[in-house]
Amino acid sequence: MPFEIHSWAEISDRFTDTLLLGNGASIAVDERFHYESLKQHAIEDGLLNEEVQSLFDYFHTEDFELVLRIVWQATNVNKALEIEDEKTEAAYRHVRDCLIAAVRDIHPEHNEVAEKLPSIAAYMKGFYNVISLNYDLIVYWAMMHGNDLDNRHIFKDCFVRSEFDDDWSRFREVYGDIDSCSLVFYPHGNLILARDKIENERKISSQGSNRLLENILEKWQRGSYVPLFVSEGTERQKQKSIQSSYYLNTVYREVLTSFQDSLVVYGWGVGEHDQHILDRVAKSGIDRIAFSVVDNDQAYCNRVNQLIRDNFNEQCEVLFFDARSPNCWVNP
């Protein structure tokens, strides 16, 4: 028997706790996010030479961020010890420049998506928590748009003066003329997050949203920071990367297990490489989940329904809703 696909309006009142966003949410904003991987994009565009490709093979990873961080650390050690090593320096510059080029090719500018940000901000406002598995700036730009509005609501990412405050639950408190807030987290990191030479983790900010993407890429280019995001790799590789970051590990261990009653999943394929996210959410004890569906995809509904049956308690209710419903994500 086919699963019923609801409109968002039919179920929205029952789902206000947490929104989890996958890559399909970004694709709904801009089709350029419909790519296999950053590394594959770089290879197909002839950006990666064979020598640097061998680094990915040696470390058994597809993760650009990890390879860049490894060679960046190696060059910094060599500089500190005054060891001349042109080959390592050249590898670092090549990986860095390939990542910058790949992000520039794939990621839209702010002005190209600005008209969709009001709808996204209005949708996110309906949740206490927003969890984005995407490295791109869509959610952050929507946050900034929402915080510029005079609607007595605020989005908070729990960073204070560019540093993450691990007492994150205190940010739920509202004050002054604010009536409600949504907390935003990135379990796989984000372009706005970075590491410095001694592994301090920071949020990169900008005077305006229009300059944010370019400001981030300029900081990478200068060698001031390396990015903090996990965009690719197997489940085990992603878990290892998460464990290496204080911010990512805190979100993974504390935030993902803190959801109260309901979860909305938008644009997430729930692939094998993201099973660790599902495992953590299952520990939160939520009792209902709603998944977005495109084009009445019953095969997806069947697979997801079985995953929930296998990972959550048997009382957990599973619903499906049309991803293109009015007032849902980018849909006005």
Rank of each mutant, 00 (worst) to 15 (best):
Q73R: 06
L81V: 02
H6K: 15
W168G: 00
D148T: 11
Y35G: 09
R152Q: 14
Q243E: 15
L193P: 03
S54I: 04
H145W: 15
V184K: 01
L81P: 00
V71E: 01
D295R: 09
D177G: 11
K203T: 03
L47H: 07
R195S: 12
L137F: 04
G208L: 11
R69L: 05
A122D: 12
A25V: 06
K116Q: 11
A90K: 06
E36R: 13
R152W: 05
K283G: 09
A91E: 13
N249Q: 14
E218H: 09
D17Y: 02
R324S: 15
Y175V: 10
L149Y: 06
E199C: 05
G176Q: 08
L66K: 07
E109D: 15
N311W: 03
S224F: 13
E317D: 08
D179R: 12
R309S: 14
E173G: 11
E84A: 11
S206P: 09
V160G: 06
Y247S: 05
M144C: 13
R303M: 14
G24Y: 01
V304Y: 10
Y300S: 08
I178Y: 13
L117R: 07
S132N: 05
L307C: 12
R202C: 14
L212G: 02
H60G: 12
L217G: 11
A42Y: 07
N305T: 12
G176P: 05
V174L: 03
V294F: 13
L149F: 06
I242Q: 03
K39C: 05
K238V: 03
R202Q: 14
V174G: 04
S12T: 10
R236F: 10
G146A: 05
S284E: 06
I70Q: 02
V318Y: 08
L55C: 05
Q243W: 12
L21Y: 07
L137G: 00
L68P: 03
E112H: 07
D157N: 05
L191P: 01
D274N: 08
S245R: 01
Q53Y: 08
E4Q: 15
L133A: 07
S284Q: 07
D322R: 06
E31W: 11
K238R: 07
R236Y: 08
P2V: 05
S26P: 06
